[in-house]
Design a protein around this nucleic acid. Structure first.
Lengths: 221, 221
DNA sequence: GGCTAACCGGAAATTCATTTTCCGGTTCTG
DNA sequence: CAGAACCGGAAAATGAATTTCCGGTTAGCC
């Protein structure tokens, strides 16, 4: 995480460890709902802690974002592995992963990477690349199965997922939406991804640099 | 527009009128590419004019945004009318309108409305509501035709269109994308909108308040 | 229980981007 | 060619966010 217990000093207190957990939980929820440009104050409010506490455990905002992003990548990889194991075919596994990504909005975490090179940087890059590779495998299988249209690639997919609207805002806001916008759009999207696809997609397809560039201009990370 | 010639005074100069046109053209392009949170300085740069000139013709940034939005609404209404006239069926007309909206990214303009009540406020609301009504008619027809899935409504649509990524950045930027992301996503989206649709959409459907609320939290307008 | 380092809250300082003003100099146009 | 209309862009005003700081509070070992 962010604090290593130096050999000679006192260890981290139990309440502090619990607070770090609360911060990460709150950050994850708030980022999912509103994107990671929300203020630290917002995260603090949601976690029930003060801003000072957050800065006690993370050197700066970006470090917090990175930590959350790593969590997303790893978790999604696990979900993917489990789906591949348990589902009867690649398409079912694929939709299951999509639903999970939409639910937690992990795709917006892909671009979080190298603005500043922090200590968790390498871990993040590794987790992200591992997920992308797994996703590509799964999509290949779904395409060979004849279920997924063959003219989309991993980057298209991540970008599409990133474009989905946020899920319903949390507890606090008064004027909450009553619709599951994400769910509705995702369903339409999945239908659109089914093979063979009537529309002809403009070429060329997206590439990795496109993905990076898009997120850079879109989210500034 | 924004300047009325008072009866006794000199009329607006020809070069000034041309500049207003340039400002609107530049604003439209920049907003389409990067959203309307781009700075006025950006608009100025793109129009080849100074910031002072923009403020000479528009009392504040929001007034400029409104003017652009009105243009989008009216233009899209015209495109829709023409499409209905010329296309053989409702679905073709529908896709034509969708492609136009994606091209100019007019759907992100829907929420621009009543933050401050300006003089152009009523005109904007009228233009927007007219377009929404026309769109609803067209979707109804496409649904009765059996081409458009019946479980989506106008609000779903506007929201989906608003989620599409920006089109390829303009002249200036060095690291441009080489992909037509908008086009690819739109094609997938259109396939997903085809009747009958295999996926079952979460209910209830979106409503007008949902649309307003979504944009408020998403774009702050 | 008591001591002390670890911890917390949140106001205040800082930073940074953006909007908006302002005015000396320039350009149309009658 | 007079003079109002116009322009550019530096600088002031604003606003929103990040980050620091420190007096006051705990946890947890003795």
């Amino acid at each position: 995480m962010s604090e290593i217990a130096p050999s000679g000093a006192r260890p981290q207190r139990a309440d502090a460890r619990e607070n770090v957990r609360q911060i990460l939980r709150a950050a994850r929820a708030v980022f999912a709902e509103r994107g990671f440009e929300v203020s630290i104050e917002e995260v603090a409010r949601r976690s029930g802690l003060g801003m000072g506490t957050i800065y006690r455990h993370f050197p700066n905002k970006h470090a917090l974002v990175e930590e959350v992003a790593i969590g997303h990548m790893r978790e999604t990889s696990e979900v993917l592995a489990r789906a591949v194991d348990e589902e009867p075919d690649a398409w079912s596994a694929f939709t299951r992963v999509m639903r999970h990504m939409a639910e937690v909005r992990s795709s917006q975490m892909f671009p979080v990477s190298r603005r500043r090179t922090t200590e968790s940087g390498p871990a993040l890059v590794a987790a992200r690349d591992a997920l992308l590779a797994d996703l590509e495998d799964l999509m290949d299988r779904a395409q060979r199965e004849g279920a997924l249209r063959t003219d989309v690639n991993t980057y298209d997919l991540v970008l599409m997922m990133a474009s989905l609207p946020s899920r319903i805002p949390g507890d606090e806001a008064a004027g909450d939406l009553t619709v599951d916008l994400t769910g509705r759009q995702l369903s339409v999207l999945l239908d659109g991804l089914r093979a063979p696809g009537a529309e002809r997609l403009p070429t060329p397809a997206a590439t990795r640099p496109d993905l990076d560039e898009f997120f850079r201009t879109r989210f500034g990370v």
